[in-house]
Design a protein around this nucleic acid. Structure first.
Lengths: 203, 203, 203, 203
DNA sequence: GATGAATGAGCCTTCATTCAT
DNA sequence: GATGAATGAAGGCTCATTCAT
């Protein structure tokens, strides 16, 4: 096959983008190099020119999936107020559930579960990304408290963990049942929770 | 080592029990037959006498882990009232998190995540077990509603899913961070939720 | 193919014996696992059950070749006097050159040359074996001096090195020319040297 | 790096010169094209423009090493008498051993050993070069006999082979022991041999 | 029932060579 | 003339499974 590009950076990017989906669907151990050859259109050696090992490519793919996830779910217009920000994130997660950009479920969840006891470096990477997500949510909650939108009694850190855990659990449920309904149900439950427990009731 | 005196059923049980932990820690693809040889004390042939394939043993191990989980977390004294039942389940989950009987995290979560896109039969099994857990919780909620303990407005099914999702998400967070604190925080958050939103406030 | 043996030690021995010739002919880098599969009659996995890596098998093969060489060339009847011993070694080397037990030339020479700059552990092994051979010759020379057969002025260590070097050089010449004559010529030259310079001339 | 200004012949020469050392140290099978890219400063395509295959470059490199060896060890002033010529060669070999121009040992020895059973064409080349060296020594011996310096009973051909074999064996010993001493010891032994057996004793 | 040696397909990786630029 | 990205056929090694004992 004739390759259209002879540009290293572009090729590397292309390989990552096409591999990322495969890893997220089949898991890192479950993904075979041959699958990546098929998915990327590159041959073995072409892939190995850009990545020392399969696991290096796996980590780059995970990072890519994370960035896509951040871009889709957490990239928020500056002018939004904290409440709007929080609901935008919710809306984005729902959109992602209904029309996934990354097949195979949430890469953070998948990677955390596969790597927690198998690959310390990989686990640490998942940990890092999850911390970033949690701290983004936490920050919005703190902003909301300062700005008088959210109940000042709210423990931002705990609430962020709670929201994130619920959503990841919801994703898992919908994936194992192959049914979007559990996700939507839990999701709405979580929104209600936000409305009732986090947002300051200006009655 | 002579084992000929043992009977088949006992050997099979022993192999399952000892394999179950290995599968839960390393995942099904990540577990190698040699690990099971080491863990069980049986040799290749000894294991294959009782299980046709590694995946058959994996499924039996998963079922075993599920039964252990049910016994530890969901076996409830008949005389408890629904509120007590719910809190007993919570307490059991907390106990399991602090002192795990099954190493490697929640087998329902682990299996759901690994198998959602890779092994349809295995996914269906995880689905089945999760449905059973959900329906147990749901039933308690319904009982509680009927008995006047719980708010009759509660949607039992959704609430069961919400509670389960939160807890599974919490387990994931604690495993990837290698820190029990996130689990406990989310956990307490969920208990508060039950107290405030599910239990009928008799004030 | 049905294998005749299910005995680990015997299988290991068989693999070594059949691999040893291949390694000595093709070199360690030049020998491919497939050659060993063909030569031994064992499959990949059968070989890897007994050796962790190709290089482990290579080292075992080298050791085996060394032992064969020792047995053939340096196993000397106790009752021989030092002069007879020395000439027996010569005769054995000549016999080996005319009718080689190990194809591919002298394994000490081959391994020393291939490994001097490539594999430190392997080089050290070759060094060890060569030291053993040199010390055997040296000892015979010392014995001969003590017993009055050899000139007491002979520096045993140097003379052993000189004899060994000449013979190894001779082997190399005969192999690269694919002609036994250079070996025999040098060989005879070395014998003359022994007769004239080492053996005490009782005139 | 722009190289387009260089001309073909110069580039080819440069590649050979820089590759020659690598081949001699790592062997022909053990040398990877990437090593040559690193050593030469040329890229794959740059090298392949001048050589059809790695083995072609290997042969050119071997020839180069041979020529360097000849120049350093066998280029003798015409006015020297045969005895002086012989000792100059000896001195040159000693100088080469103490301060090698070509790293990795004697290319004649290395190539003979690696190629004797693996590459017939390459073996023939080593054979040719070795024949040239032997015949140079032989000629000096013959000259010396004619001129009355050397014992007329000396068999020039055999004596040349004997000297060459000893020295090559000595090189091998010093390389495998990583110690110059064995070389020097054998070397001195060989010089003594020349003095006592080849040079006509005019007493 | 159980052992553990052996199978062989498949895995990850390497590397001589090609070729678009 | 030269670059360096890409090829693809091996290469070393793994591992679920089989089977002689």
């Amino acid at each position: 096959m004739k390759r259209s590009t002879r540009n290293a950076a572009k090729a590397k990017k292309e390989i990552i983008e096409k591999s990322a989906a495969v890893f997220n669907v089949h898991g890192y151990a479950g993904t075979k190099m041959q699958m990546l050859v098929d998915a990327t259109g590159y041959q073995m050696g072409g892939i190995y020119r850009h990545f020392e090992t399969k696991m290096d490519l796996a980590k780059a793919s995970f990072r890519h999936n994370y960035e896509v996830l951040i871009k889709r779910n957490f990239e928020l217009a500056e002018e939004l107020d904290p409440k709007e920000k929080l609901f935008t994130i919710f809306k984005n997660y729902q959109k992602s559930a209904l029309d996934p950009q990354i097949p195979g479920g949430c890469p953070l969840l998948n990677t955390a579960i596969e790597m927690d006891d198998t690959d310390e470096e990989f686990r640490a990477l998942a940990h890092l990304f999850i911390k970033e997500v949690l701290s983004t949510i936490e920050q919005i909650l703190e902003e909301g408290k300062s700005a008088g939108f959210f109940d000042p009694m709210v423990n931002a850190k705990q609430e962020a963990q709670y929201l994130f855990a619920s959503i990841e659990g919801a994703i898992m449920l919908s994936r194992v049942t192959k049914d979007i309904k559990p996700f939507l149900a839990i999701f709405n439950r979580a929104i209600t929770h936000v409305e009732e427990k986090i947002i300051k009731n200006t009655r």
